[in-house]
C-alpha cells in the first residue's frame, strides 16, 4: 500500500542512526555495571571487557554492604515513594472527581488554582518549607518528604484524572444514584475502577522523580536514619571517591532497582505518555 514511503536505503540509514543512539544511551550504564564486578586491576587495565573468571570480584559490593546502610536507605526510599504515590492518587482522584462531576460555584477557579502547580516548581518555596518543617518538628522525618512529594504531585494528578473522569458515562453514575448509592460509593465503586489505567499513568509519572530526587532529602531529611537511596549513594560515593570498586558497586546498586521498576512499568509509562495524558 504505502510502499513509496519505505525504501531499503533509508530504512538501513534509520536503523543505523537508531542503533548508534541506543549505544550512546546504554554505554555508560553498561560500563558501570560490568566494571562493578571486576578487580581493581581489571577495572583500570581493561575497562571495556566483560568480567572473566580472572577478573571477577565482588569486593566493591562487600565494601558497600559493610560501610553503608543501603538496606535502610532502600527501605526509606520505598516508604517515601509508595506513601507519596498513595496520597497523590487518593487525594488527587477525590479532587478530580469533585471537579469533573459536580457543577458548583468556584469550580473553574478551583481547577485553575490546582493547575498552577503544574508549571511552578515546588523547589522555589524551599526556604519556607524548611522553616515550616522545623517549626512542626517534621524535619528529618520521612513525613516531611511524603508531604512535599504529595503536594508536588497533586496538580498534574488532578489535571490528568479529571480529564479521564469526564469521559466516564453519566448513565452509569445516575444508575448508581437511582439504586440509592451515596456519592462516596459512586466514586469508590464506579468511577475509580474505570479510571484505573489513568491512575497507573499518574503513578508511573510521579514514581521516577520522587525516587530520584536529591534536593529535598538533602535539605529536609539528611539524617542517617532518614536518608533515601539517592542521597545515601551520593554521600557514600562522596566519601569513597578513591575506592573505585566501592563507587562502581554503589552506582550499580542504585541503578538496579530503577531498572527493574522500569522493566516492569515501561509499557504503562510509554502508553501513558503516548496516549496523550500530558498533551
Amino acid at each position: 500500500m504505502n510502499k513509496a514511503r519505505t525504501n531499503p536505503v533509508s530504512a538501513a540509514a534509520m536503523h543505523g542512526a537508531l542503533i548508534l543512539y541506543t549505544l550512546i544511551a546504554l554505554f555508560p550504564v553498561f560500563v558501570i555495571l560490568i566494571n562493578s564486578f571486576k578487580t581493581r586491576k581489571a577495572i583500570f587495565r581493561e575497562p571495556l571487557s566483560l568480567p572473566s573468571s580472572d577478573s571477577f570480584s565482588m569486593i566493591g559490593y562487600e565494601t558497600v554492604m559493610k560501610q553503608g546502610d543501603f538496606f535502610l536507605y532502600f527501605q526509606n526510599s520505598m516508604i517515601v515513594t509508595v506513601a507519596s504515590l498513595f496520597f497523590i492518587l487518593l487525594f488527587g482522584s477525590m479532587a478530580a472527581f469533585a471537579l469533573s462531576e459536580y457543577r458548583f460555584k468556584g469550580n473553574l477557579v478551583m481547577g485553575l488554582y490546582l493547575a498552577l502547580g503544574i508549571m511552578i516548581p515546588i523547589r522555589i518555596g524551599t526556604v519556607a518549607i524548611l522553616e515550616m518543617m522545623v517549626a512542626t518538628g517534621l524535619v528529618n522525618t520521612l513525613w516531611s518528604l511524603i508531604l512535599v512529594y504529595t503536594a508536588q504531585g497533586l496538580p498534574l494528578a488532578v489535571f490528568i484524572l479529571s480529564e479521564f473522569m469526564r469521559q466516564v458515562s453519566d448513565d452509569l453514575k445516575d444508575a448508581g444514584r437511582v439504586d440509592g448509592l451515596s456519592e462516596y460509593t459512586i466514586f469508590a465503586r464506579i468511577v475509580v475502577p474505570l479510571v484505573r489505567p489513568a491512575m497507573a499513568t499518574v503513578a508511573v509519572f510521579n514514581m521516577i522523580p520522587i525516587w530520584n530526587d536529591l534536593w529535598f532529602p538533602l535539605i529536609l531529611a539528611p539524617a542517617e536514619e532518614t536518608k533515601t537511596l539517592t542521597l545515601g549513594s551520593q554521600v557514600f560515593i562522596g566519601q569513597f571517591v578513591t575506592d573505585w570498586n566501592a563507587v562502581l558497586s554503589a552506582l550499580s546498586m542504585a541503578i538496579l532497582p530503577v531498572l527493574i521498576l522500569y522493566v516492569i512499568f515501561s509499557r504503562q509509562l510509554i502508553r501513558g505518555i503516548t496516549s496523550g495524558a500530558v498533551k
Binding site: 469533585a98 490546582l114 502547580g117 518555596g125 515550616m132
Partner: peptide, 23 residues
C-alpha cells in the same frame, strides 16, 4: 464536594502555595 476537595486543597495549599508566597 467539600470532603472530596479538602485533602488535596489543604495539602497543596499548606505545603506548596503557602510556602511559595512565604518565601
Amino acid at each position: 464536594i467539600v470532603i472530596f476537595l479538602a485533602p488535596a486543597v489543604i495539602v497543596y495549599t499548606a505545603v506548596m502555595i503557602f510556602p511559595l508566597f512565604n518565601t
